[in-house]
């Protein structure tokens, strides 16, 4: 009997420990999410929200090519950004973890994440000036004679991608660096003992073992980039719209929260699908 009571006490204590987290999640995720789902099934008509259930907001979204194009633009830009960021961040993290002397690694990491200290909005506007018609990049290219006329860089998809990559390379460098640091050097030594060359060691030992870190960073990049409004708005020049910009148009111009909610749910569904696609690499523990 005493053992049963002790076990129950143990369970209650465990529950008490997780209760704050559960309450937090319920208050700040589940309830707002449920409200957003409900809102997406209502309709704004003539300036008023009709609280009767309908799927019309979803039908509108999937029935209008310019809305679907927004989703396609979001996916294309986000995937491009994720791939380019990984390609830049991995070598950078590897150099910091393997080539930079240990006492300088902290300083190197700090330098790598230094741009994080600037406001995201200010950084985006700064990029706009850098990429402008007579900005730093064009002036440098013209000065060294690489181009005869200024390149069109600002207010393009390229500018959006550059702004994103600048931000996410820092984020990915941190996650990949942490992963590389956890990796015992004995793996590489054992592979070398067995006759593997540097390329083979990287491809067959280092890369597979650091893949979870890469995937966690890539997933974070995907989630943050696909939901971002600021960078495409400032750097893209409204020459094409991504889904968050279309969502903002529904809120800012129409005060149409039901439509905006439906689009936000679609965006969440896309993120969920990507999560499931990457789930096998997103476990926190090392296999």
């Amino acid at each position: 009997m005493a053992a049963v009571r002790a076990a129950r006490r143990q369970r209650l204590r465990g529950f008490a420990f997780v209760l704050p987290a559960l309450l937090w999640t319920a208050a700040f995720f589940l309830l707002p999410f449920a409200f957003m789902v409900a809102m997406s099934l209502w309709r704004r008509v003539g300036g008023r929200i009709l609280e009767s259930w309908t799927l019309e907001n979803y039908a509108d979204f999937f029935g209008r090519p310019h809305f679907l194009e927004g989703l396609a633009n979001s996916l294309e830009i986000t995937l491009t950004v994720t791939v380019i960021s990984v390609l830049f961040a991995y070598p950078l993290a590897w150099i910091i973890a393997e080539k930079v002397p240990e006492r300088w690694q902290r300083a190197a990491l700090m330098l790598a994440v230094l741009p994080f200290w600037t406001s995201y909005v200010v950084r985006s506007y700064a990029w706009l000036l850098v990429l402008a018609h007579d900005g730093v990049v064009n002036r440098a290219l013209l000065a060294v004679g690489l181009v005869e006329a200024p390149l069109v860089l600002a207010s393009t998809r390229t500018a959006t991608v550059i702004g994103f990559v600048h931000f996410f390379v820092m984020l990915l460098t941190l996650t990949i660096y942490a992963n590389l640091r956890q990796l015992s050097p004995n793996y590489a030594r054992a592979a070398a003992d067995l006759g593997a060359g540097p390329v083979r060691i990287f491809l067959h030992v280092i890369l597979p073992l650091t893949l979870p870190g890469v995937m966690v960073g890539a997933f974070l990049t995907f989630v943050l980039a696909i939901g971002d409004y600021v960078t495409p708005q400032i750097l893209g020049g409204n020459n094409e719209l991504v889904l968050p910009q279309i969502i903002m148009l529904q809120i800012g111009r129409r005060a149409d929260l039901p439509s905006a909610s439906a689009m936000a749910i679609v965006l969440m569904a896309v993120v969920t699908l990507v999560y499931f696609a990457c789930a096998r690499w997103l476990r926190l523990e090392r296999a």
């Binding site: 506007y125 706009l128 600002a154 207010s155 400032i234 020049g237």
Partner: peptide, 18 residues
């Protein structure tokens, strides 16, 4: 058009020669 921008973006574009 080169861009469609809000107040700040469009003013910046004109002021910077974009």
């Amino acid at each position: 058009a080169k861009l469609v921008g809000d107040v700040v973006a469009s003013q910046t574009a004109l002021a910077t020669g974009e």
